[in-house]
Design a protein around this nucleic acid. Structure first.
Lengths: 190, 190
DNA sequence: GAGGCAATCTTGTCGATGTCTAGATGGGGC
DNA sequence: GCCCCATCTAGACATCGACAAGATTGCCTC
């Protein structure tokens, strides 16, 4: 119902992406249907395919956008703990992106744009670890994997409703801060 | 091709489950097709539905089985770090179960058997945290969430091929041990 | 401002899938 | 020996992803 007075939609790509994110957030990626997205945008059933090639292409585009959003979200981090908080915040703010990003079987793994975006976000994470004080940077590989694991595990368990009881009404960010302190010590990343 | 000489398959439920796990492990849950599983078992296309009701039912059964396998895997843990190692080992040994267990949108959330199996594995995790020495058990809720986050994050990143470079040929278990030590200190869980 | 090109969208179609229904088969308990 | 019910078959229907061919239109060029 956006603008059907013209033959061309105007910005079908953006409209389909937005609708897709909405479906994925509320019903999961499995419920995603190209024909349904077309109906929501008020275009014919084959229109979305022109912008995303196929279902996998749409999901790959979402994953790519997700990696870029994550890179941006991490760019202003003050230290590693803050980066973790921002990682969790990203997952909460963009649950659909997050879900799709870490489900490789839904994506075209060899897509050049996805690979590039992935490399950028990965590099961003490495940069955070590299900025650590000496004693913590002893084995950056292990420290990086540990930090990523904590943040990613927390975010995943959060989105899959496995922490609902543990949170007890607290904001996810605050709960994660407590977890991060327990893990790296209170002054860990400073 | 198992035994089509009789009208009854013999153990279709088990055959379908095994085939499903195989498909999920190699191609992901999205590639799962009831009709394909029926073909593999040499039965008609509607036969699997009698055992699992529908696609969601099949995945719910797999998730339930997964939680029971996880509970069993954790039952012999010596301490919290060992529980983490066993958690990762479980994810590597049963990747299909693990994937499905933590994708709620694929499951019938209110299934009684699933709920019960989930409660059992969750209780198992709580028990591990409760067995900690005094100083670590200060805030069991936070400690439990932290431990679960580390193990779950590591396992998830591992299965999604995000640690392939970091591993550098090492066994996942060993890499996780290093991560656990970095996180909780070398004698953390002892 | 007229013509043409390319991007965008439509329409029609095909094979495959999930699910429902009705009916066939046969093993096990009475 | 008979009957009941779990198990499996066969058929049908709506929906979906994907493909092909054609219609529409914005825009660029002259």
């Amino acid at each position: 119902m956006t603008s059907r007075d013209t033959y061309h939609h105007g910005d079908l790509r953006r409209a389909v992406l937005a609708a897709a994110l909405d479906v994925i957030r509320t019903e999961g990626p499995a419920a995603l249907s190209l024909r349904d997205l077309a109906r929501r945008a008020g275009v014919s059933h084959a229109a979305p395919a022109h912008h995303f090639r196929d279902r996998t292409g749409l999901l790959t585009a979402i994953a790519t956008e997700g990696h870029d959003l994550l890179t941006a979200a991490l760019s202003d981090a003050t230290d590693l703990r803050d980066a973790g908080v921002r990682y969790v915040r990203f997952a909460v703010a963009h649950p659909a992106h997050f879900q799709v990003m870490f489900q490789p079987d839904l994506l075209r793994a060899d897509d050049p744009e996805l690979e590039a975006a992935k490399a950028r976000s990965y590099e961003r994470l490495r940069a955070e670890v590299a900025g650590l004080p000496g004693d913590r940077a002893a084995d950056p590989e292990v420290t990086g994997t540990a930090a990523w694991s904590v943040a990613h595990g927390f975010a995943t368990l959060l989105l899959t409703h496995n922490l609902d009881r543990s949170l007890g009404g607290r904001a996810p960010e605050d709960a994660f801060r407590a977890v991060a302190d327990a893990v790296f010590g209170n002054g860990g990343g400073e």
